[in-house]
Amino acid sequence: MTADTPQFSRLARLSDVLDETDARLRRGEAATQAPWSTGFMPLDSYLSGGLRPGELILLGGPQGMGKTTFALQIARQAIAGGHAVLYVSYEHDSVNLLERLVAAEAGERAGVDAVPLRSVRALLEGDGTSMSLSDKLAETPGGAEALAAVSVGLDRLHVLRGGVDTSVTDIEAAVREVARTGGLRPLVVVDYVQKIAMEGERAVDEERRMAHVAGGLKDLALTESVPVLAISASDAAGISEGKRLRTQNLRGASSLAYEADVVLVLNEKYDVVARHHLVYGAANVERFHQFAVLTIEKNRGGMAGVDLEFRKRFEQARYERAGELVTEQLVDARLFVE
């Protein structure tokens, strides 16, 4: 544990815990670890401040729903808060993650007119000129400012490129290496959990494999006292158009949901809003397409069953961080409406 991490022995009398807690508070120290802000409001409020060390947080959603986008913005917020991040990427290479971070930062700083992701990507792919990235971005709206902002603390963002044999043991070793070299225990982001290799026996069904992996991630969160944010893919039944994806539609759902302290699920608002909002409010159709609904399906530390909406800005690889409670009626499935 780091020097500033409160920790008691495995076996302790609660009276001793109270005495130690009081002593820490009298010294002006924290008696427990504060949550790490996600940067999304009012999500932080419903999570009692954000993501907590020792917890496993599951983020699910249909393909193309911006799960990586959402996770990267949480990672960026952790860096801005002085924390370290270990991003375990089975899906995207390091340059792709950098492109997304720059585009999202530009959007947050310069608004919807800022340089889009496709332009940032084109610059990194090369345009035949011998200019630095900062010089190239200086000619784009918000690009130079975004690169300067992203560069601050970027040495605390570590990427572990996952492969077919990358297991929870490998992730744990990377966490310890990050802590050893930088002195900070990181937020761990796994993109995505179904790609984690299982040590030993391979020929097992999905549920058993996910039980092993989810249990390992939860143990990692507790042992290393870090928050673990794991992105989850959906099963075939959870990707049908017009159907609301729920926890039970995630691959290996029962094992994942059992181990997770928090389960967050993203859905396209248009796909889950009740039909009468579309029939009697045709002007709403386009607006609903612009929003995602984030549902807190499980929350051991606070309220669950909460539906929040966030505006999508996928052209800039981001969500708007200020969201609202959903006011419309939502359904698990709806009749198709044009």
Rank of each mutant, 00 (worst) to 15 (best):
E259C: 00
V150F: 09
T181K: 14
P186R: 05
G163K: 08
V262M: 04
R185H: 08
V213E: 01
V193D: 05
V213A: 04
H158N: 08
N267S: 12
R208A: 15
R156P: 02
E177Y: 04
P186L: 11
K136P: 08
D261E: 10
V175S: 06
D170C: 10
A236E: 11
Y258K: 07
R244H: 07
A230E: 01
M198E: 09
V265Q: 08
T181Y: 04
E139V: 13
K136T: 06
V152Y: 05
A253T: 05
E139K: 15
A221Q: 06
I239F: 03
D219H: 13
G183E: 12
E199L: 12
D165F: 08
T223P: 00
G163L: 06
Y258G: 06
A257G: 12
V265N: 07
V263E: 12
A236T: 13
L266N: 04
T140R: 15
S240K: 13
R208G: 04
A179C: 04
A148V: 12
A197N: 11
L137K: 09
A237M: 10
V193N: 08
L245K: 03
E199N: 14
D261A: 05
L250P: 02
D135W: 03
E145S: 13
I231G: 01
V226F: 03
A257C: 03
T169F: 08
V228T: 03
L154N: 10
R246I: 12
S225R: 14
T181E: 14
G215L: 06
L250T: 13
R244P: 10
I171Y: 02
D235V: 11
D205A: 12
S167Q: 09
N249C: 04
S134N: 11
M210P: 09
V265H: 05
K218F: 00
A197M: 07
A214G: 07
E224S: 08
A260Q: 06
V152E: 14
G238Y: 06
H158W: 09
V228D: 01
S240V: 14
A257M: 02
G242F: 10
A233S: 13
A203T: 07
D165Y: 08
M198Y: 05
K136R: 15
R176A: 11
I239A: 11
S234R: 09
N267W: 01
M198S: 14
H212R: 14
G143I: 11
T140H: 11
D219A: 15
Y192G: 02
S151A: 15
N249T: 07
R251P: 01
R246H: 11
S234Q: 14
I196Q: 01
D235W: 01
G163D: 14
Y192I: 00
A203S: 12
A179F: 01
L222K: 15
A148D: 14
G238I: 08
V190D: 00
L160Y: 04
S134D: 15
G242E: 10
E145K: 07
P141G: 12
V193M: 06
V204W: 05
L160W: 02
L184T: 14
V152L: 13
V226W: 03
T247F: 01
L217T: 03
D191T: 08
A214T: 00
G163W: 03
M198H: 10
A174W: 01
S255G: 11
R208M: 13
L157V: 03
